[in-house]
Design a binder for these strands. Structure first.
Lengths: 142, 142
DNA sequence: ATCTAATCATTAGATTGTCTAACGATTTTG
DNA sequence: CAAAATCGTTAGACAATCTAATGATTAGAT
């Protein structure tokens, strides 16, 4: 009966992910002036030029109005631009500004630094274990 | 040179944890009327009777005013009670009300359900891999 | 070809979580 | 006992989040 095992694992998984997420957010806030959603939007738009607000909402896992506000907020800070989508005028096409790209690169550099430092102190076996488990986690939460 | 490996792992780790956190939050919001911090506070207070606001802040990884507001908000909803701490009158002693305990149990039941369902569909080896990696993750983010 | 239905985005309004700075009350310490 | 540290709250700001409603545009059905 693996039901009990699954239940315990599920609880531990929830708690571990929430804890890790909070810790990462704290690191980011200390180093960078980007919130987690803003950081994720920069990453996403960098990989997906001319995406729509809908695309961003879907990626973040939030409602459309929420994504709309985040995008508008970042546009006001000159991190993103928005243009009309030629093919479908209901949509907007979102892209990174030069500043947006620069901030993304800085953020990535700094955000990953603390984690890299800690990773450098654990053994290779643990790291590959972790790496493999991320695929499983992604599968569970997609 | 494991520097590149660490960097890639760090980025994947950030993204996986943020993604998983957001997905869990979405599941919780759909099923339960508790936010993630509220859920975590219920769990924590249940395990740590007569804890202080400081303890809650430390557990959540947030500032004291933030913890204070969350606790006050939950007190107004009759999920928690707060009494004077006899030994140190600067502190408050926080505890679960009957309603708080009931809500926690319901929440835990429902929050874990979706995850359990998904866990039941993956093989045992993946599950133990995941289980082991949570310890490493906790180590990295404590 | 037009009318209806679906899709995309925003506005409006509410709630929560989050921070820093400043303050009041209490305890600890020198 | 006086100064310093600790605990919690208040004040004020801002970002993220939701649902419901609206406007604009496109797609589909007849």
């Amino acid at each position: 009966m693996s039901n009990d095992f699954d239940e315990r694992l599920a609880e531990e998984l929830l708690e571990s992910v929430f804890q890790a997420s909070r810790t990462f957010r704290r690191w980011m806030r200390e180093d960078i002036s980007l919130s987690v959603p803003q950081f994720r939007v920069l990453s996403f738009v960098n990989r997906n030029r001319d995406c729509s607000v809908e695309d961003v909402a879907s990626y973040l896992g939030v409602s459309k109005p929420t994504a709309s506000k985040i995008v508008e907020n970042m546009r006001l800070k000159n991190l993103l631009y928005r243009t009309e989508n030629g093919e479908d005028r209901r949509k907007v096409s979102i892209g990174l500004t030069g500043k947006g790209l620069k901030v993304l690169e800085e953020a990535r550099l700094k955000a990953v630094l603390e984690l890299k430092n800690r990773l450098s102190k654990i053994d290779q076996q643990s790291k590959s274990l972790l790496s493999n488990s991320l695929k499983i986690l992604a599968e569970l939460t997609k």
